[in-house]
Simulated assay, not measured.
Amino acid sequence: MEDEILAIFDEHYNCIGSSPRKEVHKSGYWHETFHCWLVGREKQKNYLYFQLRSKTKKDFPDLLDITAAGHLLHNENISDGIREIKEELGISVCFDDLHGLGVFPYSIRHEDIIDREYANVFLYEHCFTHKDFLLQGEEVSGLYKIELESFAELISGCKTEILAEEFVSASADRVPSNIKSASLKHFVPHDPAYYEMVIGEVRKKWLQD
């Protein structure tokens, strides 16, 4: 994985070449990623779905993160990013059914990594049951749903803890069984502005529908 070749960009989103993933993160080159948020609506409430990263992950283990996300390789188009959904969650979706939110540039510094991303962000309104998912256990240990407005209050600081309900488990029977109390420390520390953008777009989506 560290030897994957990624396209690299300048601060104006101009491609300036390519480099191995390890070097990209070491040197802090801008690169492209694919983010897809599964969203749902139940009893007039909107939900975001978060993957729980495996405890064996090198970066941010056992934290709640974007439903499905990954790096785009140097020879891939944005639409190729849907492979991440299939690989991580085990469900097949059509790129044309995704709702694009645009490109969000942001960066995270973590230990010896400088992660500067041009994130191509999408929403997908799902209608699956937990039996439809087959999580990639070495990457994802569970899928949790969180009520959108509760998450918004957590990000804004109005709440310090919210409930996260397991929707599917990576265990053999995939039966959800856990409800956890989640604070900010339980989430990958993406830029709050990124989370706020996603929250705003989900709200807008259901106002328009």
Rank of each mutant, 00 (worst) to 15 (best):
E11I: 15
Q44R: 15
H99I: 14
K58A: 09
G102V: 07
Q44I: 10
E32V: 00
F9Q: 06
V93Y: 05
G28H: 02
F50E: 11
D10T: 01
S92D: 06
Y47M: 11
K86C: 02
E11H: 15
I8H: 03
G70A: 03
K26A: 14
H12C: 14
L72E: 00
A69Y: 11
Y49W: 08
I91K: 01
L98P: 00
Q44M: 14
F104I: 09
Y49N: 07
I82E: 00
Q51P: 12
N46Q: 15
I16V: 09
Q44K: 15
S54K: 02
H35P: 04
W37H: 09
E42T: 10
I16S: 01
K55N: 06
G81D: 01
N46M: 13
Q51R: 15
I91T: 02
S79Q: 14
Y49V: 05
E87Q: 11
G40T: 13
Q51G: 09
G90S: 07
H25W: 12
H25D: 04
G40S: 15
F95T: 02
N14V: 08
P20L: 08
F50A: 08
K22D: 13
G81R: 01
L73A: 06
A68E: 01
D96T: 06
N14Y: 10
T67R: 06
K57D: 13
N77W: 12
S18Q: 07
F60T: 06
F95H: 04
S27M: 14
E87A: 12
E23C: 12
D10Y: 05
C94H: 13
L38G: 05
K22F: 13
G70V: 01
E23R: 12
K22P: 10
A68S: 13
S27P: 03
D96P: 00
F95C: 02
L38D: 04
I78N: 03
G40V: 08
H35E: 12
G70H: 02
G28Q: 05
L98V: 01
K57H: 13
D97A: 11
D97R: 10
N46K: 15
G28F: 03
S19Q: 10
L101H: 12
D97C: 10
D96N: 10
H99K: 12
N75V: 06
K57Q: 12
L64A: 04
D10N: 03
K45L: 15
L48T: 01
E23I: 15
D80H: 14
F34T: 05
R53Q: 14
H12M: 12
L48A: 05
A69V: 08
G70E: 03
H71S: 08
Y13N: 14
Y13R: 15
W37I: 04
C15F: 06
E84Y: 01
S19I: 02
S79P: 11
E76D: 13
D97I: 07
I66D: 00
E76N: 14
H74T: 02
G70L: 03
I91L: 05
C15E: 14
I8L: 09
E42M: 11
G102I: 10
F50G: 04
I91F: 03
L72N: 00
N75W: 11
R21C: 04
H71A: 11
K86T: 03
V103C: 09
I78F: 04
L38M: 13
N14C: 05
V39I: 14
H31N: 11
G90L: 02
S19M: 10
H31V: 08
Y49G: 06
H99A: 07
E11S: 15
D97T: 07
W30I: 11
E42F: 15
N75R: 11
